[in-house]
């Protein structure tokens, strides 16, 4: 449900992302801000069944952040959820920090090493296949970027998952419409993405990726579906969401605002920053 708590959580995560990239002096801010509500719905919304105190509990759900470059949002959510200290965020990329520029298995709560785009869904398909084979009930969730969907390996995995009826596999696509240089529809058209996924044998719903209620409703149904198909949620989002001058602007795929822009970003996020 959309409520005050989830709104506050998303605001807090956005501030943590901002603090992280300001402290690091770099970061993939656009794609992190677009995925805030998706990750908050998954973790804080209770979709992903996982206990931060037992990150290796065998029957936990698995979440793979395939768009690993947007690690700042993952780190913020994992820290906020209790996997590690929030203070650790301010050390990203520094000597001795456990947080690097892409997620890896050294970090509590991270299931797979991602950063080379296009691999998370295939790994997730392997996990889901193993769970099905072992008659385990845990689910595998994978977050893809829409630009990532240009990788052929994504579609190899899509075919595989549908053919093997991996009903326990859920993919969320952060459909923010932008890749690094261009709008996706000006680069290589992805649309109609939902029809493509259906043609590949997936159940598909499209939601507003910044509406926690819509996300939660769609993702909750992942456990109750009876079609036997893998499940895709296309989350329509805005790259750079929450900071007006970054929204829908390809220049903010990667970068840190400075000077007046930083002040404006702080103002729009309604805080002063920790640094």
């Amino acid at each position: 449900m959309e409520n005050k708590n989830s709104t506050e959580t998303c605001s807090r995560i956005r501030r943590m992302i901002m603090d992280t990239i300001v402290a690091a002096g770099k970061g993939h801010i656009g794609g992190s801000l677009s995925a805030v509500e998706i990750l908050v719905a998954l973790y804080h919304g209770g979709i992903v069944h996982i206990d931060a105190k037992k990150p290796q509990y065998p029957l936990r759900d698995r979440f793979i952040m395939s768009k690993g470059h947007a690690c700042e949002v993952l780190y913020a959510v994992l820290a906020d959820y209790g996997f590690f200290s929030v203070a650790e965020l301010l050390h990203l990329g520094r000597d001795g920090s456990m947080l690097g520029g892409h997620p890896d298995r050294h970090i509590p709560g991270v299931e797979a090493d991602t950063g080379s785009l296009g691999n998370g869904l295939g790994i997730g398909a392997g996990l889901a296949f193993a769970a099905k084979l072992d008659r385990n009930t845990w689910r595998t969730f994978v977050l893809l970027g829409d630009g990532e969907c240009y990788e052929g390996s994504v579609w190899e995995a899509m075919m595989f998952a549908a053919h093997h009826s991996l009903y326990n596999l859920v993919v969320i696509i952060d459909r923010n419409q932008l890749c690094v240089l261009d709008r996706t529809e000006d680069c290589n058209r992805l649309d109609p993405l939902d029809d493509k996924l259906r043609a590949f044998g997936w159940d598909v719903v499209t939601v507003n990726g910044h509406n926690i209620a819509e996300l939660s409703q769609a993702l909750s149904s992942a456990r109750s579906r009876s079609s036997g198909k893998p499940f895709a949620v296309i989350a329509n989002t805005v790259k750079g969401k929450g900071i007006s001058f970054m929204e829908n602007d390809v220049r903010w795929h990667h970068g840190v605002p400075k000077g007046e822009l930083l002040e404006k970003a702080y103002c729009e996020l309604d805080y002063r920053g920790v640094l």
Partner: peptide
């Protein structure tokens, strides 16, 4: 039940193998 022909898709084959091996 313990064999899959993954098709001519070497990239996905290795990714699926990784996922299976992660589960033991």
């Amino acid at each position: 039940s313990r064999f899959i022909n993954t098709g001519i898709a070497e990239q996905n084959t290795i990714n699926v193998a990784t996922g299976l091996a992660m589960e033991g």
